[in-house]
Design a protein around this nucleic acid. Structure first.
Lengths: 247, 247
DNA sequence: AGCACTTCATAACATAGGTTATGGGCCGCT
DNA sequence: AGCGGCCCATAACCTATGTTATGAAGTGCT
């Protein structure tokens, strides 16, 4: 999974907005790649903003440590996502980033990103669109962490991951791999690990989510989406006409 | 309070990064202005993205309705903020926006914003920086809504507002106006209005926050910041050297 | 001044989720 | 194969916050 195959970029391409030079610039972004091990910390909160990454293989998450010793996971990154954009325009990292499982990342510098933005208005808008979409997912979590039950929070998160994985072809026969531990899920959702476990049990009893080891299956995806009050518009990939140069 | 006086732009100016043409473009953004009444809804979730606004006077908030009839307030806007940037790159609004009290807004079109970004790399980076900073505030709320007590949530929110108001000169002798009702505060923090009331009582008894009518005063700002685990780096306005063209 | 309306404080009660503890299953290491 | 270490499930108990209700205070309208 490369950035070039990511959904926003693919859409620009489909509309013929992407020149060959643009494509070359994108491929150049993934020029160097590095293998990373499970649990590896890519950077810590407060460090200098020295690089961003395209996540090519594996899962990652950004996080903040809390004073009580636990952590809040801010965002889960899947293959094809850009990691670190959150810090663009800041001197120091606002959050750490760690790998969940083993994978491959393609690091590139802020200068490289600035260059790319200056070199191609199309790519600049694409990058902005990607950043805005990542933030929209964050906003969505704010909404459902605020006033929803544990079942809805977990259901919503799982369903979002399911849709994102499906877009990159990582769902087979309705099944997908979830490499997060229940403790990590708790850190995502603001729940204790014990309650995540309880909630999985409830979802199983209600026939909404089956999970065995890391494999997840939804017997009735629509019912799950309904229970979680899932509204997919925030994941909508269609770019407005102005972005595609059609206006 | 105009955009030109906002902290990010002022910083660009101080470093001589802002040309006269750039300044003219910014002033042009506020060419037309409109008086808005308290409670006025600027737009609803799901409507077309037709315009953005510079908020010149008054307070506003963006929000999402929840299925249970309540709402989640996503962000509170103060004078000098740009409203609607969240939707840049989407076709439909992801959230509604309403005025808290009466004020003045300066609407401008997405095309206008695109033009400005194309016309001036400096302003483009400035706009990105503003957007990233607004999102950083959102992230911060996600962190403390996830795993903090009601006291910390309310304390954190009040302290953030206090710092933001101070930057625009709206704090006098340590006092500031807070035009939000307790119900609205609950919608910001994911708490019931009753519990917001209880929490104010607790904060008063602990000598951390005094509130009379809409006027708020912190007898000991440092103690409040400490209780709320407030870390100001996410509000830090200093732009990295690359943004100021010094690298 | 009087009236309706909203906002706020407080109390009593209900509950979702946190905490601590225990045991079982699975994994990797030697 | 045996051992130590996670990860997970479940139970018992505790607490922060939600819910509902009531009255007081403030606000705006006529």
């Amino acid at each position: 999974m490369t950035l070039l195959n990511s959904v926003v970029i693919q859409q620009l391409k489909r509309h013929g907005a992407l020149s060959e030079a643009d494509e070359a610039l994108l491929i150049e972004l993934e020029h160097s790649s590095r293998r990373v091990v499970a649990g590896e910390i890519l950077w810590q909160e407060g460090s200098d903003v020295a690089l961003f990454c395209v996540l090519k293989e594996g899962w990652a998450y950004s996080f903040r440590y809390l004073d009580n010793g636990s952590m809040q996971i801010l965002k889960v990154y899947l293959p094809g996502d850009i990691i670190g954009m959150r810090d663009f325009g800041f001197s120091k990292r606002l959050a750490g980033v760690a790998m969940i499982n083993a994978g491959v990342v393609c690091p590139f510098s802020p200068q490289h990103l600035s260059q790319l933005i200056r070199a191609s208005p199309t790519l600049a808008t694409g990058v902005v669109a990607i950043a805005v979409r990542q933030q929209a997912m964050l906003t969505e979590r704010l909404v459902y962490i605020g006033r929803h039950t544990a079942q809805q929070r977990l259901g919503h998160f799982l369903y979002e991951i399911y849709l994102r994985l499906r877009r990159i072809g990582a769902v087979e026969e309705g099944r997908f791999q979830l490499p997060l531990s229940q403790e990590q899920l708790g850190d995502v959702l603001g729940l204790s690990a014990v309650h995540v476990s309880r909630t999985f049990s409830m979802l199983r009893e209600e026939g909404l989510v089956l999970k065995e080891r890391q494999e997840v299956f939804f017997p009735d995806p629509e019912a799950l989406a309904k229970m979680a009050e899932f509204n997919a518009t925030y994941l909508d990939e269609s770019l407005p006409p102005a972005f595609l140069g059609i206006d």
